[in-house]
Design a protein around this nucleic acid. Structure first.
Length: 411
DNA sequence: TCTGGGGTCCTAGGACCC
DNA sequence: TCTGGGGTCCTAGGACCC
């Protein structure tokens, strides 16, 4: 199952006047186009296109533009997945708008069931989705894609249909075939998914590693990519943002860095992990034509594996001070934590005390912030964020998660 | 004549996904 | 003026061990 033009569809649920019209949603900082309605696609607006390049075109064609509202999309996604979970015992939530359902052993009319899934999700959330059935994840993705061009549903349930589907799927449409592999395959006259299944396995292995070999098997109906019903703990966690405007002042950058460190710490606590390493990076505008691009980063080993706000901030700022060069106009900074292990088994440090007091403090502030809103309680170094925070000029309300932003209806 | 055999760990780089 | 933010996996090569 996957959502149609997911972010745009989320906006439309609360703003039905957008139906049938060109709509786009932008990336953070209102930079690039990352979700498009069918009408916007038909106008020729491209995925990932910088929006400033098409500003006049967008105005002339009355395209509605939205900043990305991840609070809203995340909540709508949860609602969608909750409905979906009533349709199969095993489900893998693969991304914000995609999930795999395991229906093996379930005796149903697949076509009827697929439509029932679509209709129920639409009724419960207002979101349009597509459903595809296949013997493997890769085949299900292909079925889903074909379904989008029809009535939202496609079932691959016989060898004849499978053969037809593979012959009618361009090689670059196949899950796991990206730009580089597509170029390589085109050079070798492989144009469709079907052509790929006819390739010599040794050639695939040599040129595309075992990953390519799995794709071949999956296309033939042999499952090689298992369903992951439990999301494994993340091995890296990052929080990175471009600034709304370029910044030189280290104190302002430090505010951003401190906030990113806190977000990373929160993400670690959410999955009950601690990190051993912290990487902090900073760079100038990579697109600037008159300034040379400067990018620096540093990885620090934490004195003790941690997920506390203070410990991560301390390391992050220490790193920042080492890589910061005065006089440059910076555009982006970020934190990446790694060396992640479960938080119930932290190796002690002979030279550091235990950080149980930090733990107490953190769990208290987490509780308060959960109840009264993010960053209600924070460290002074996190600052106000006015100078560096995101550009979000077209942000819609958080309709489903804030009382103050509820949809108002005039009767 | 002509220098063993079997391992692990780490990292960088390249590919991919949403 | 102006270009996002997350992630994963695989492989080769180098360093090391006994």
């Amino acid at each position: 199952m996957d959502g149609n033009n997911f972010y745009v569809s989320c906006e439309r649920v609360f703003n039905p006047s957008l139906e049938g019209k060109p709509v786009v949603v932008l990336s953070n900082n209102d930079g690039c186009i990352i979700s498009r309605s069918n009408e916007a696609k038909a106008l020729g607006l491209k995925m990932g296109e910088p929006v400033f390049k098409r500003k006049d075109f967008i105005a002339k064609n009355n395209v509605s533009v939205f900043s990305s509202n991840y609070t809203l999309y995340g909540d709508m996604s949860n609602r969608m997945m909750m409905t979906l979970k009533t349709f199969a015992p095993d489900i893998e939530v693969y991304s914000i708008d995609e999930a795999f359902l395991n229906l093996s052993g379930i005796q149903v009319d697949f076509n009827e069931y697929a439509h029932r899934i679509r209709n129920t999700i639409f009724k419960n959330t207002g979101l349009p989705v597509g459903v595809g059935f296949g013997q493997t994840k890769t085949l299900a993705k292909i079925a889903n894609k074909i379904g989008k061009k029809q009535n939202g549903v496609f079932i691959i349930d016989t060898p004849r249909i499978q053969d037809w589907a593979l012959r009618n799927t361009a090689i670059e449409e196949v899950w796991g075939i990206g730009r580089q592999y597509a170029i390589l395959l085109m050079k070798n006259n492989i144009k469709t998914a079907y052509d790929f299944t006819q390739l010599d396995t040794q050639w695939i292995r040599k040129n595309m590693t075992v990953v390519g070999q799995r794709i071949k098997e999956e296309l033939a109906g042999v499952s090689c990519i298992p369903l992951e019903t439990m999301a494994p703990a993340k091995k890296n966690i990052a929080t990175t943002r471009a600034f709304g405007q370029k910044i030189s002042d280290i104190n302002l950058i430090a505010e951003a860095v401190a906030n990113h460190a806190v977000r990373c710490a929160e993400k670690l606590r959410q999955q009950h992990s601690v990190a051993n390493y912290l990487n902090v990076f900073i760079h100038t505008d990579p697109f600037s034509e008159h300034e040379t691009y400067v990018s620096r980063n540093l990885t620090l080993t934490l004195p003790q594996a941690s997920n506390s706000n203070q410990a991560l901030i301390q390391a992050a700022l220490q790193g920042l001070r080492q890589i910061y060069q005065p006089g440059l106009k910076y555009k982006k900074t970020g934190i990446i934590v790694s060396g992640i292990t479960p938080d119930n088994f932290v190796q002690g440090n002979l030279f550091e005390g235990s950080d149980f007091r930090k733990k107490e403090l953190t769990s208290l502030t987490d509780h308060i912030n959960q109840r009264y809103g993010r960053d209600k309680l924070k460290l002074a170094v996190q600052g106000s964020g006015k100078e560096w925070h995101l550009k979000q000029e077209k942000l819609s309300p958080r309709y489903t998660t804030r009382w103050t932003e509820l949809l108002k209806v005039k009767a």
